[in-house]
């Protein structure tokens, strides 16, 4: 334990901790809106596009962080335009961007004479070598991302839930769609140093998948996924730090693996909750007909806590046992 505290007293470890804390909180917030739009893989596509941006930055001597932001934003706008025009087949457009982005990055780096080792820092993250300037950049972006995602939540939710209704309510649907695309691009580059471009999408999507095992509303999903993302990134960093005594563990990998572990732990709980919810679902309240089926002999007295499941059915409850639906009627039970 004291080893761990010693480790976190090192400046580079503190910087890494701050970066993990802020990106872990902000990135899943953007991810929630991508998952809502069924574009869970968009973060991955943008990550690939950002590789080209990083390579251009390395070759030209510009700051790779900024060239990556520009490339990812351009990619995001391209994806959004394609999506707007051709909805269902957007996945094909995504695939084109994936491979174009990654191949472009490797090609540009090669042409410029950059070693792929330098590129690798960005592909797999390098949170331990993050500079004070990068930490400030990451924290600033993360705060803006989280504030926009939570503050504009109702608008962004409505636009993705039903874009035609949102338009008639007076929202500028195209603006909000582009905003989500740009937020996704920015969060990819913000998390580039933490988990790396190839794994950034996991931090966007996995906490959301975990959160929705337990939630029924959009807002709780959003907030819970932010919390889970934070736990996973800080926890993953600690795991990597502990392991560093024995082995060289990349924090990006341990962060993503930890968020997957959280999902695997939560999934059975979610399955149980969904099953219970389905069993409690009221029976359809069809209009009363003349069919009246009294149950002949029934020694068992149904009631609260009688051991049989009670399910709402219109203005009364049916008790379920052995494939029957028994509803109390005067002094006997009817089969409903």
């Amino acid at each position: 334990m004291t080893d761990l505290l010693d480790l976190f007293s090192l400046p580079f470890m503190q910087r890494a901790l701050l970066a993990a804390l802020f990106t872990g909180m902000a990135v899943p917030a953007v991810g929630t809106y991508l998952v809502q739009r069924r574009m869970a893989l968009m973060g991955d596509g943008l990550g690939h596009v950002a590789v080209t941006g990083v390579a251009i930055g390395l070759v030209t001597g510009l700051a790779p962080t900024w060239t990556a932001v520009v490339a990812a934003v351009l990619g995001a706008v391209a994806i959004e335009v394609i999506r707007e025009r051709g909805h269902a087949n957007g996945d094909l457009a995504l695939a084109l961007l994936f491979y174009g982005g990654l191949a472009g990055g490797i090609f540009v780096a090669g042409v410029g004479g950059e070693s792929t080792a330098k590129l690798q820092q960005y592909l797999f993250g390098s949170i331990l070598s993050i500079s004070p300037g990068d930490v400030a950049f990451t924290m600033g972006l993360s705060v803006v991302l989280a504030a926009l995602c939570v503050g504009l939540g109702p608008q962004l939710f409505a636009v993705a839930q039903d874009h035609e209704f949102a338009k008639v309510v007076g929202l500028d649907v195209r603006f909000y769609n582009l905003l989500v695309a740009v937020l996704a691009a920015v969060s990819v580059t913000a998390a580039m140093r933490t988990v790396g471009l190839l794994l950034v999408s996991a931090l966007m999507v996995v906490p959301v998948a975990t959160a929705q095992q337990l939630t029924r509303s959009f807002r709780t999903t959003l907030l819970l996924s932010m919390g889970l993302g934070l736990v996973a990134s800080v926890g993953g960093l600690v795991v990597a730090a502990l392991a560093s005594y024995g082995a060289d563990v990349a924090p990006g990998a341990s962060i993503v693996l930890l968020s997957l572990v959280l999902f695997v732990v939560t999934w059975p709980v979610g399955a149980l909750l969904r099953r219970r919810q389905r069993l409690r679902l009221p029976f359809a309240d069809e209009p009363a007909d003349d069919v009246h089926l009294p149950v002949p002999e029934h020694t068992h007295q149904h009631g609260e806590g009688c051991g049989h499941r009670a399910v709402a059915h219109g203005d009364h409850v049916d008790y379920l046992h052995d494939g029957h639906r028994h509803a109390p009627h005067d002094s006997h039970y009817d089969e409903h």
Partner: peptide, 16 residues
């Protein structure tokens, strides 16, 4: 939608 939404949230979006 890919994320659960409550009836309250859907009805509430009409208030926007």
């Amino acid at each position: 939608s890919g994320v659960p939404a409550s009836v309250w949230e859907v009805v509430g979006s009409g208030r926007l």
